[in-house]
């Protein structure tokens, strides 16, 4: 079951999207506040964070930057009303996994979440292997 954090200032969008994602066996946490999202992402481990690009408090790119600073391996998918090429490039440079335009097709979004989940698993495995290799090298076994 994929664990997803959904961040958007449109509460109606969050509620509907969360219900649909949960019906597809995803564990969804929602918040309308980017600051709360940063807190949640530090407390819990998510397979993917779905983030709106334009929000009050902090815009999506700023939130993305903070999320990646705290956890570079976090898979962040940006959702936006209108994606300019410039914003898209900026988002990718900041480490976004993907960028989708609203209204998004849930099938496509679900696929991207599953891909993000797999990518996270690979990264976790890679890190565990590196750790073992490091221990082996240090202990000289």
């Amino acid at each position: 079951m994929e664990k997803v954090l959904l961040v958007d200032d449109e509460k109606e969008f969050l509620d509907t999207m969360a219900e649909r994602m949960e019906a597809r066996d995803m564990n969804v946490t929602t918040t309308t506040s980017p600051k709360e999202a940063l807190k949640k992402a530090q407390e819990e481990s998510y397979d993917a964070v779905i983030l709106d690009l334009q929000m009050p408090e902090m815009d999506g790119l700023e939130t993305l930057k903070e999320l990646k600073k705290k956890n570079p391996d976090l898979q962040v998918i940006l959702l936006t009303g209108h994606a300019t090429v410039q914003k898209g490039v900026e988002a990718m440079k900041l480490g976004a996994t993907d960028l989708l335009e609203k209204p998004a097709d849930l099938k496509i979004l679900t696929e991207k979440i599953k891909k993000a989940h797999t990518k996270k698993m690979v990264l976790v495995q890679k890190k565990a292997e590196e750790k073992i290799r490091h221990i082996l090298a240090e202990k000289g076994w």
Partner: peptide
């Protein structure tokens, strides 16, 4: 107009997900 179209996109996203939920 950019702001208005952005907001309309947000509304369309909510209606789109609502229609999807009805399908579900």
């Amino acid at each position: 107009t950019a702001s208005i179209s952005h907001e309309i996109k947000n509304i369309m996203a909510i209606i789109n997900e609502s229609a999807g939920l009805l399908e579900d």
